[in-house]
Design a binder for these strands. Structure first.
Ligand SMILES: [Mn+2]
Ligand SMILES: [Mn+2]
Ligand SMILES: [Zn+2]
Ligand SMILES: [Zn+2]
Lengths: 149, 149
DNA sequence: GACATATTGAAAATCTTTTTCATTAAGTAT
DNA sequence: ATACTTAATGAAAAAGATTTTCAATATGTC
């Protein structure tokens, strides 16, 4: 597995291994998008990912960013994050596994763990409504400590 | 306040009064959009609202649907609902005040009340992270009773 | 009914995302 | 290393969603 960027991110390596395992080719464009997503601590829109990733792959097209995001979403390595402004951002699953704090100023995403027992909330609702709950999205919107000043 | 549609919906009347109070004109296009939103029990996309509302106002343009939705959102009489497919729907606030069940099949929205004490969840998070939480979005995605068959 | 102007609809412009298709390059076999 | 197969790519076009522009219209007021 030849290295392409001087930087070797273990998170990137893990996803690459998974892609390989599933028979996908480990291309330079895919690596570049992956690198950007895994080194970011906030959610990025496709256009922003495109700009950043061209540092690693100057020929990268925006179309491939969309395709890679779709692929990685399907494998659940990244998640789409709903943004109030109407656009959608993407963040690595580690950052966005269903419960997050989103700063309306700097768009930083903070995942809060220790909350996978939303079943306490969900179970009674399922019983009362007859709904079958398959997934959930909990977003707390506000201001991060830095942006409150 | 001259009536335009034969149907007189008290929810519609209440919003109209609010619009009037703020100095907005009570136009036929606005009434038609409002009527559709207030008689619906699910979240509707702008295009769908446009189709339905033309029953009440045949000359209605899609642009005005968007403008009215923006106006009503600002006054918090309707809320934008995030949909997994990437589109956005709108539902009256009563249906979508922050916690809802959304059927991935028929897109029905069920609001579950008696849950305004999310503070139990939010307060500790604010303390731990320093985040100032201003708003929240809790969506439970799954299948409604009818669509489970 | 006349008036001032907020509101409207059509068209054009923007912005986001998807589809198409000829070209390129990753993985594999020589 | 070289040749081969075909998955993957990028450019352009298409499709979709939303916003802006602007002349015409309809609302609330006098
Ligand atoms: Mn959304
Ligand atoms: Mn979870
Ligand atoms: Zn911030
Ligand atoms: Zn359903």
């Amino acid at each position: 597995m030849k290295k392409i960027f001087n930087m070797s991110n273990p998170k990137v390596e893990r996803v690459l291994a998974d892609l390989k395992r599933l028979g996908y080719r480990l291309t330079r464009p895919r690596r570049s998008v992956l690198q950007v997503l895994m080194e970011a601590d906030d959610c990025l829109r496709p256009e922003e990912i495109h700009v950043r990733a061209r540092r690693y792959c100057p020929t990268l097209g925006l179309v491939t960013v969309y395709r890679t995001l779709s692929l990685l979403s399907g494998m659940d390595h990244v998640r789409r994050v709903h943004r109030e402004d109407g656009c959608h951002g993407y963040a690595r699953t580690e950052l966005a596994h269903g419960h997050h704090l989103i700063c309306r100023d700097c768009h930083q995403v903070i995942e809060f763990p220790g909350l996978d027992d939303l079943s306490l909330l969900i179970d009674p609702i399922e019983r009362e409504t007859g709904f079958l709950v398959e997934d959930h999205l909990l977003e707390l919107l506000g201001l991060c400590p830095a942006c409150q000043g």
